[in-house]
């Protein structure tokens, strides 16, 4: 039998899942490699573990939303990601959707006792 904490954690993860993609796309308006991207997201209050981040980056790149290139930095080969032109267009639409949804949900929640 799941406890209240388990139920909350499951719902929290579901709530975060969609917004993580938005946060990653938003952060990649500036170029990052995986480790700095994760740190930048964490500093902004969005924690994401490596196991979720790297496959997500690869998927977004396969979808044409990100571009990447290998470059040597700090004596190591690193893969740098940034938003592609298609990614920018999709992000703009997602932000619009997010803002609308946020306003709607906010209004609903404000109306509750």
């Amino acid at each position: 039998m799941p406890t209240e904490a388990d139920i909350f954690e499951t719902l929290r993860l579901e709530l975060r899942r969609g917004s993580l993609i938005l946060a990653v796309l938003g952060q990649l308006r500036a170029e990052h490699y995986g480790y700095t991207l994760r740190k930048a997201l964490a500093d902004a209050g969005v924690e994401i573990d490596e196991g979720a981040l790297y496959p997500m980056l690869r998927r977004l790149e396969d979808q044409g939303l990100l571009c990447s290139e290998w470059r040597v930095e700090e004596r190591r080969n690193k893969r740098f990601y940034r938003l592609s032109p298609e990614g920018e267009a999709v992000l703009a639409r997602l932000v619009e959707e997010w803002t609308r949804l946020n306003a709607s949900v906010g209004a609903i929640l404000k109306g509750t006792p």
Binding site: Y33, G34, Y35, R58, R76, R79
Partner: peptide, 17 residues
Amino acid sequence: QTRADIVAELRDELMSG
């Protein structure tokens, strides 16, 4: 086909961490 690429990226993440 993607093994070397993914492993190289994970290596950098682990080493950086």
